[in-house]
Design a protein around this nucleic acid. Sequence first.
DNA 1: CATGAATGAGGCTTCATTCAT
DNA 2: TATGAATGAAGCCTCATTCAT
Lengths: 219, 219, 219, 219
Amino acid sequence: MPKETFYNLSEEKRNRFVQIALEEFAYRDFQAASITQIVKKLGIAKGSVYQYFDDKLDLWLYLKKYSEEIKISYITSLKREDYPNFWEYYRAMYLHGINFDLEHPLCSLLLYRIGFKESSEQVKPYLHTWKEEAKIFFRQWIEAEKKLGTFEEGIATDIIVHFLLTMSLSITELLQDRYHIDFEKNISEGKPLFGKNKEELIKAVNDLIFLMERALKIN
Amino acid sequence: MPKETFYNLSEEKRNRFVQIALEEFAYRDFQAASITQIVKKLGIAKGSVYQYFDDKLDLWLYLKKYSEEIKISYITSLKREDYPNFWEYYRAMYLHGINFDLEHPLCSLLLYRIGFKESSEQVKPYLHTWKEEAKIFFRQWIEAEKKLGTFEEGIATDIIVHFLLTMSLSITELLQDRYHIDFEKNISEGKPLFGKNKEELIKAVNDLIFLMERALKIN
Amino acid sequence: MPKETFYNLSEEKRNRFVQIALEEFAYRDFQAASITQIVKKLGIAKGSVYQYFDDKLDLWLYLKKYSEEIKISYITSLKREDYPNFWEYYRAMYLHGINFDLEHPLCSLLLYRIGFKESSEQVKPYLHTWKEEAKIFFRQWIEAEKKLGTFEEGIATDIIVHFLLTMSLSITELLQDRYHIDFEKNISEGKPLFGKNKEELIKAVNDLIFLMERALKIN
Amino acid sequence: MPKETFYNLSEEKRNRFVQIALEEFAYRDFQAASITQIVKKLGIAKGSVYQYFDDKLDLWLYLKKYSEEIKISYITSLKREDYPNFWEYYRAMYLHGINFDLEHPLCSLLLYRIGFKESSEQVKPYLHTWKEEAKIFFRQWIEAEKKLGTFEEGIATDIIVHFLLTMSLSITELLQDRYHIDFEKNISEGKPLFGKNKEELIKAVNDLIFLMERALKIN
DNA sequence: CATGAATGAGGCTTCATTCAT
DNA sequence: TATGAATGAAGCCTCATTCAT
C-alpha cells in the first residue's frame, strides 16, 4: 500500500498519477506494464514512484484496491429488498453498473484484466480474490433465490453462477465490440466517452438480460 | 512462418519442439514467454530456434496457426445439413469440440489466451484475426438461421452472436472451475486429463446449452 | 564538520541523533550505511540531516572524531610515570580501555571498523589517520621503552608494534567469541551489556597480556 | 556456482575474467563491488556476466571457493608428522603460506576480507564458514598438542586459539605495512610483486613466530 | 530550523537476437 | 545444421542530495 508521501501529494498530482498509472496497467500485463513508461508520460523522475510505493507490485495492489472500492460503491448502492423480484433487481444493478464502466473506464478495464486476462507470476497470489468472492457471493444469493422460487431447483447452482457471472462480465467486451468504443484511443485523445450512444447501450444490456431471464426463469 | 530447416527436422524433434513451445506460450503472455526457458527445457542451443524461425513473433504465429488448424479440423468435421435443427447441431458441435480441448489442451489454452487474454503490443496486429472471423462466421450463420425460423427476428443478431460466442468460449473456465481441472498441474505431472469425469463434463455442457436454448429458442 | 545548526539542537535531540547515526555506521560499510535508514529510525525529515551536516562524509567524519575523542579521554587518563614498568602500565591501560568498549560499544565498533574493515573509496583518505597515528605513537613509545630496557634491542620495533597493536585491537573479537557477546543483538534489544561476565572478561584480557608479556619481556 | 558456459570459455578468457573480478571483490565490500566496473575493465557486455553466473552472489561465492581451494592446496602440502615439534611445523606452514599470499595476492586479500572485513547483509550467511572452521580445527589441534606437552594446560585453549589465529591472519597487514606493498598499485601497473624483499619478509615472519613461541612454549 | 517531495545517476538483472565456429 | 558466447537495450530499484515551502 502507498507510503505516506503519496497521500501527502496534492490531490491534483495524486489523481494525475493514478490516471496515468491506471492507463499503463489497464492495457498491459503486470509484467509488461512499465514504470519507465509511466514516469515518462508523467514527466517525473523514476525515483518519485518509489517515494510513493514500495515497488511495482505495491503500486498495482493500490490500483486494484482503488478500482475495487469505486466499483463496490456503485454495486452496493442498490438493495435487493427494494425490488419486487430477482430480475428487476438484477437489471437495475446491471444498468447501474454500466455507469461504473462509463465513468471509470480505466478502473473497469483493470478489474476486467485482473479477473480474466492477467497471468503474470508475480501477481498470481492476488488474482482470484475478487473473482472467487464474486462466485461465492453469487452462489449464496442464487441458493437463497432458489428458495424464493426464482430458479428451478433442477438447474445446478454452479451452472447458474457460471452463466450469470460470465454474462455479467462480458459486458465490457460487448461495449467495445458493438459500439466501437476504443477506450484507449478516446482517452488518449481526450474525447468524451459514449454520449449519444448511451441509450443504445442500455438497450443492448436490456436485451442481454432479457435473454438471461428467458434462460433461467421458471415458466 | 518457419524456415525450411524446421521442416527438415525429424518429426520427433519437431513435435517435441512444438509441445514445449506451446507449453511456454499457453501459460504466459507473449512478452513474458521466454525463448530462454524453451531452449532450457528442450536442451538445445538458443541459436537453433533462430535457425527454425525468424524471431519470437514468427514462432508465436506458427503455434497460433498450428493450433487453429487443429481446431478447425475438429469444427469442420460436422456438417449443418446432417442435423435436423440448429440446437442439435450446436450441441453436437460443442460436445465434439470438447474433444479438441481434451486432446489438445495446450492448443486450446493458447487459442483461449489469444482470444481473450493476450495484450502484448507486439502481437496486437494478429490478435483479433480469428476471434473476428468467428464473429463474422457466427453473424452470417445466425442470419441464415433467422430465415429458417430458428431465432426471433426481434433479437438483434449482434446480441445473439455475443451471447453464443461468450458462452461457447467460457467453457474452458467452466471445466477448470467445476471439475477442478488444473491443466497446468496435470500436464506437468504427465497425468492423463479427465478420464472418469468426462460424463460429468458432458452433462455440464448439456446443461449450459439447455440454458442457451431456453434463452434463444422461439416458443 | 557539523554546521552551527547541529550544535543549536537541544542536547537530547543531538544525543539521540548521534546514537542512531552511530548505530548505522557501526554496523555497515560507509557506502552501505544509509542516511535514509537513519532518518527513518529518528523519525525526522531527510533534509534535516543536511541542515546539520554537509553530506554523508561530513557526518561520518563527525562520528569518527566523536568516538576518537571519547576513546582518547579513556586512554590518556592513565600516566606512564604512575606505573613501575611497561607491563603494569599496559595491563592497566588495557583493562581501563575495556571500559570504553563496555560503556561506548558503538563508538568502539565504529573505530574498529574504521581501523580494520572499512574500504569504501570515499573515506579512504581518512582511513589510516588514527591507525597510523597509533602506530607512530606506539613506535616512539616502544623505542623509548627499549632504552629503559623493557624490550630487547634485537627485536625489530616494527614487529613489536605490529604484535602489540594487533593483539590490542583483537579484543573486540575476543569479547564476541569467548563471551558470546552479540553487541548488535543486545543493543537492539536494549539489554545491558556484560554484567556478571565482566570478571571473566578481565581474566581473559589478563591471560592475553600474560602471553604478550611472555613473548616480549626480557628474561 | 558458475554455469557451464563459464567453463566452456577459453582458459585465457576465464583467467582474465577471474583476475579482474577478484580485483573488484578483493578491494571492495560485496555491496560496493560493482559488476558494472568489472565489465568495463574487461571490455565485455554486462549480459555476459549473467551467462556465466546466476548473479552477483553466485560470482562472489565462486571467487571465494576458487581462492579457498588454492589456499587449501598450499596448506595441506605439509604434514605434521614430518616435523619434530609444533613450532617447527607451524613455522614451516607459515612460511610456506606466504607463498600463497605472494603468488595469489588477490585471493589472499579476498579471503582476508571475507574473514575480517566483510559485513554486507547479503553474504552474511556465508561469512563465518571458513573462519569458524579454522577455529574448530585450531581448537582440536591445540588440545592434541597440549597432550603432547606443547602447551601448558593452564592456558585456556580459547586464548591460545585466539592468539594464534589473530597473529596468523595479521600477516597480510604486516606485509602491506612493513614492506610498503601496495597490491593494488603494483598489480594495476603490471609490476612484479615483491622480489628482492622476500628475504626480509621471511625474516619478519620468523620474528613474529619467534615471539609467539616465546609466548606459548613451556619453559 | 524543519520538512519531504523531487531528482537522476548508478546498480543488478533479463532477454531476444546475432554471429563466428 | 547446430552451437552457445556475446551483445546491449530496457527494466526495476536505491540512495544521497537539493530546494521550495
